[in-house]
């Protein structure tokens, strides 16, 4: 995983740095002191190396903690693992937020649309019923008017 690669790469960096800064190189740079105090030079060098390694390891640990790298690396490993069957390049933000937000909104708009369609259909059905009773009411009124007219004519 990524955490493993990260640790390996940093350790390799350290090893190579220490190899580059060998004791021979150190002693040759500090030749005057080395001639005077060879043992002390060696112990100073050893301390230098162990101190450098300890500081760098500590720093790496701090960066990991600060950025929660361990957690991020493992979750990224999972995400990459899940996408392993995906051949073609995946979507990336277009740089136009108005366009990118469309897909985020789409499922909800589709739900909204089906809600509206259902509500409209119910309203139409309901109105059809009410319209029928209105028509029936009109017929009833027409009938009553005719009845009244007939009676009135009779009386007339």
């Amino acid at each position: 995983g990524r955490a493993q690669v990260f640790a390996t790469v940093v350790n390799t960096f350290l090893e190579k740095l220490v190899t580059a800064g060998s004791y021979q190189r150190f002693a040759s740079c500090y030749r005057c002191f080395y001639k005077l105090q060879p043992q002390l030079t060696r112990s100073i060098y050893d301390q230098f190396i162990s101190q450098l390694q300890a500081s760098i390891k500590e720093e790496i640990q701090e960066v990991k903690n600060e950025g929660n790298l361990e957690g991020l690396f493992s979750s990224l490993d999972k995400i990459v693992e899940e996408a392993k069957d995906q051949e073609e390049p995946a979507w990336r933000p277009s740089g136009i937020p108005e366009e990118d937000i469309c897909s985020t909104m789409l499922p909800y708009l589709l739900k909204h649309r089906s809600h509206l369609c259902r509500a409209l259909r119910e309203k139409e059905e309901q109105n059809t019923k009410v319209a029928e009773s209105v028509l029936m009411g009109r017929d009833r009124i027409a009938e009553l008017q005719q009845l009244i007219q007939a009676r009135q004519q009779a009386w007339q």
């Binding site: 995400i79 990459v80 996408a83 995906q86 051949e87 073609e88 390049p89 995946a90 979507w91 933000p93 990118d100 469309c102 897909s103 985020t104 789409l106 499922p107």
Partner: peptide
Amino acid sequence: KNVLLPEDRVQKQYPC
């Protein structure tokens, strides 16, 4: 390149 972050999965499910 082939990886899509979880928060962007919707882009794949609902290309629009």
